[in-house]
Design a protein around this nucleic acid. Structure first.
Length: 521
RNA sequence: GCGCCUCUAGCUCAAUGGCAGAGCAGUGGACUCUUAAUCCAUUGGUUCUGGGUUCGAAUCCCAGGGGGCGCACCA
């Protein structure tokens, strides 16, 4: 628990407009402060009458979806003897003299409350009139339908479970200001069904991945977030510090190196779904912290993990959406269709109309880059240039799921060299909607070669490329114990969720995306 | 980091150099079958902030802040 005093209203509200207002002075008029003052005054009034406006618990008999499942087929104008207790937030009310209709919502759905003065009595009915939109209610009553057939709970007794002292956003339009939606995700979730849906899809996707992998004998593990050296990918890390060890640490940028240590340890099939952190730009496709699923399968190679990639994503679509057909850029795409595979060098060559390959003289590739408006740097070799040319020419056109294979060795320090072409590796990336979703390879397990590759990385880092890696001696020691042939895979869970939810910014699938702190005005 | 766009009542939006408005929410009233309930009345503003131009600025200009999009970086 925090050290904040219990009545520090301003700190709890986080609302800079309200911080310097006079609550008592706001009892008349309107506006946010007057509204909060009115609702807060109601709290005091309830307590004066011996009613606790924040009770400790409520025992419900049914969720609202369960009510609908059981009684959804009742004909119009039906009354039942079924006594139920339901709980939820009051979202709407329609006041009609001695009758009040309310809309109660819980996680599972909504149901109408039918509140009659003749049933609840004058006193309780007067209390109902004092309820506000947004209040949490527990309702005891019977199941009925109205004359027009609306399934309802006819209230016998209504209990306030929690008072909302702040008004809900617009009941019809919800919240549209993206800043407010992301900062006050709680309010977004209350009023925007699309926001709730995106996170349901995300949950279903993650759950589906776990199920698919568990069914295939993968073991879920958790490895350290705090690394002495952040390796396993090319990215700039966040730095933090451990006080008692007096040690600078980095937040992980990948799961890879620890998981492969577990393959050395004989765990054979492992996966982790974990948060990783990259100290780089923020965009519609990038959040500084995001979720990766990585898996490693002993005795397999790149082709095995390509098959798993398809299976994971197709299963997730079925589990989250009930269909494998989704719309991407207006195109109907059946994810269950086989995904085309093409080498990066071939895609780039085709798009550019000229053969490209990392074995070509660097000057030639630089000239090609210039020709296509690709900015290049002196320290780049042929491999990096080929990747840049691919990204500039072909990447964006990969709308349907496509496996791009054969990444240059220069940009793949942990992948095994292609058995037919020493300039390339046995690596693939999955592209959908022009975005990279997954990355996998036949894992390099020769400790001597891995050391040489690490040393190349270290040299590049020393030469000023902050994203490059360094020599991980403990990882090399692990490889010296022997790592079996292994296929490895990483999938960006946020991007899979984006794809399945049909949203175009990563902030729609991250509950609390990284934003600048709110400023005091 | 650079470029473009944006910020008006609690929420959703008008007002394009001339009195800051509407709908919802709120408040008071009517209504025992409403369902974005309806009807009557009504409260509510640091127009993101600070400067400037102008007789007059939400509106034009400058600086700053938040956000969005694009570029760059990356997944």
């Amino acid at each position: 628990m925090s050290d904040t005093p219990p009545n520090d209203d301003a700190a709890a509200s986080g609302d800079h407009i309200g911080d310097h207002s006079d609550i008592d002075g706001g009892l008349t008029g309107s506006g946010l402060e007057a509204e909060r003052a009115r609702r807060t005054a109601r709290l005091a009034e309830l307590r004066d009458n011996g009613v606790e406006p924040y009770p400790y618990r409520f025992d419900r008999t049914h969720t609202l979806a369960e009510i609908r499942d059981e009684w959804g087929e009742l004909e119009a104008g039906a009354e039942t003897e079924a006594k139920v207790a339901v709980a939820g937030r009051m979202m709407l009310r329609r006041d009609s003299g001695k009758l009040v209709f309310g809309s109660l919502r819980d996680r599972s759905g909504e149901i109408q409350l039918f509140i009659s003065r003749a049933v609840v009595g004058d006193e309780a009915f007067a209390d109902v009139k004092e309820l506000d939109l947004g209040d949490w209610l527990g309702v005891h009553g019977t199941v009925m339908t109205t004359r027009k057939g609306e399934l309802s709970v006819k209230a016998d007794r209504i209990e306030l479970l929690a008072k909302a002292v702040r008004p809900m956003p617009d009941k019809w339009h919800g919240l549209t200001d993206t800043d407010t939606r992301f900062r006050q995700r709680y309010a977004d979730l209350i009023v925007n069904a699309d926001a709730r849906r995106a996170f349901e899809i995300r949950h279903a996707t993650v759950a589906s991945f776990r199920r698919t992998l568990t069914d295939q004998g993968f073991i879920e593990v958790e490895t350290p977030v705090l690394h002495v050296e952040a390796g396993g990918a090319l990215a700039r890390p966040f730095t933090t510090h451990h006080n008692t060890l007096d040690l600078d640490l980095h937040l992980r940028i990948a799961l890879e190196l620890h998981l492969k240590r577990l393959i050395v340890g004989g765990m054979e099939r492992v996966f982790e779904i974990g948060r990783i952190f990259r100290n780089e730009g923020i965009s519609t496709r990038h959040n500084p912290e995001f979720t990766m699923m990585e898996l490693y399968q002993a005795f397999g190679d790149m082709t095995d993990v390509m098959a798993i990639t398809e299976e994971l994503i197709v299963n997730a679509a079925r589990d989250a959406l009930g269909t494998t057909v989704i719309e991407i850029q207006g195109l109907q795409v059946d994810l269950a269709d086989p995904w085309p595979r093409a080498r990066m060098v071939d895609l780039a060559s085709e798009a550019l109309g000229v053969e490209v390959h990392p074995s070509q003289p660097v000057e030639q590739l630089r000239a090609l880059a210039e020709q296509h408006g690709v900015r290049w740097e002196q320290r780049w070799g042929g491999g990096k240039l080929v990747e840049e040319l691919f990204e500039a020419s072909a990447e964006r056109s990969l709308v349907r799921p496509t496996f791009v294979t054969g990444h240059p060795t220069e940009i793949s320090p942990l992948a095994r060299v292609d058995r037919t072409d020493p300039w390339l590796t046995e690596r693939f990336e999955l592209f959908v909607d022009g975005r990279e979703l997954a990355n996998g390879y036949s894992e390099l397990n020769d400790p001597a070669e891995q050391r040489a590759r690490f040393e190349d990385e270290q040299a590049a880092k020393d030469a000023g490329d902050a994203e490059r890696g360094s020599v991980d001696e403990d990882y090399l020691r692990a490889l010296e114990y022997g790592m079996p042939p292994t296929g490895g895979l990483g999938i960006g869970m946020d991007r899979v969720a984006m794809l399945l939810a049909g949203v175009d910014t990563i902030k729609e699938v991250i509950l609390f995306p990284t934003l600048r702190p709110e400023v005091e005005s």
